[in-house]
């Protein structure tokens, strides 16, 4: 290719990615942004004042969502890492079936599973509870963790652990001082994925939480039904911040020499 197309392709792509952010930001601070106006003629922080009202829907939604996403992020990362290690480092009977079970939730839509599970959740009093919502969120998150951690443990050399054991470290010390530091990139990306999937989940929360567990996506949906676009903009911005903060700390593991995304490339 003599004629260099690379730059225009990349620029066009970045425009596509960022113009929608610009419209969200302008809407959040606009005061009556009527049609032909290219940019809002007057600005106001009204939407953000509503957003930070401690008893308002957004703050309450942030609290509920953070609690659920933290619980789900930590538990899914723990649960899935063990399985990732088993798949990458051990051979066992029915391994293929187990791997199939891990991949199946990526294929079967969450809606299908949740509608079916509601009957069980009703029986055991889990509907309309935070615990029930957290349990439901484990379904789409654990498979991602298993895949990412399988990729991580595939490059893991057990000799380091044995070295530690030979030198007299206890099992716990080996895990703490050898294993975890070695797989921390995978663990971080797993937590990022699990947290973000749980944080963004709408339909599972709506069905299991019965509308009484109001996470941020439910709040945003109720704003979308209204016509207060500045409020929609402000809620969207609040909604994006925690995932972006997490990305800030984990991005070095997404694309790197030891990219933790490779686990996702091995379905």
């Amino acid at each position: 290719m003599k004629f260099n197309l690379r730059i225009p392709i990349i620029v066009l792509f970045l425009l596509y990615l960022f113009v929608p952010f610009i419209s969200i930001i302008f809407w959040s601070i606009a005061r009556g942004w009527r049609f032909p106006e290219l940019l809002p003629t007057s600005y106001s922080l009204r939407a953000f004042e509503i957003a930070i009202d401690p008893s308002g829907d957004i703050v309450q939604g942030v609290i509920t969502s953070t609690l659920i996403a933290l619980v789900v992020g930590v538990s899914a990362t723990l649960i899935g890492s063990f399985a990732g290690r088993a798949i990458a480092m051990h051979n066992f009977r029915l391994k293929k079936s187990f791997q199939f079970l891990v991949l199946a939730p990526l294929i079967v839509p969450g809606l299908a599973v949740t509608m079916g599970i509601q009957i069980l959740f009703i029986r055991y009093g889990l509907v309309d509870t935070v615990l029930g919502v957290c349990l439901a969120h484990l379904i789409p998150t654990v498979p991602y963790v298993v895949m990412i951690m399988t990729g991580t443990f595939a490059n893991f050399d057990r000799a380091y652990e044995e070295q530690g054991q030979v030198l007299g470290a206890s099992r716990l010390t080996v895990v703490r001082k050898v294993t975890i530091p070695m797989v921390i990139p995978g663990l971080s990306v797993s937590f990022l994925f699990a947290f973000v999937i749980s944080w963004s989940e709408y339909i599972l929360t709506l069905l299991v939480g019965g509308g009484s567990i109001k996470t941020l996506p439910l709040v945003l949906f109720s704003f979308l039904r209204g016509s207060d676009l500045p409020l929609v903009g402000a809620a969207s911005i609040v909604f994006m911040i925690p995932p972006l903060i997490l990305l800030r700390f984990t991005s070095k593991y997404l694309v790197g020499r030891s990219s933790s995304m490779t686990g996702l490339g091995s379905v």
Binding site: F82, H90, F92, G116
Partner: peptide, 28 residues
């Protein structure tokens, strides 16, 4: 037994919640 302990948590989550949910959906 070690392998079983490693896969058990995932097996419980996906076996009960995912397969259970799917299965009860199909029954319904």
């Amino acid at each position: 037994i070690r392998v079983l302990w490693l896969i058990l948590p995932t097996l419980l989550v996906l076996g009960i919640l995912f397969l259970g949910g799917f299965f009860f959906g199909v029954l319904q």
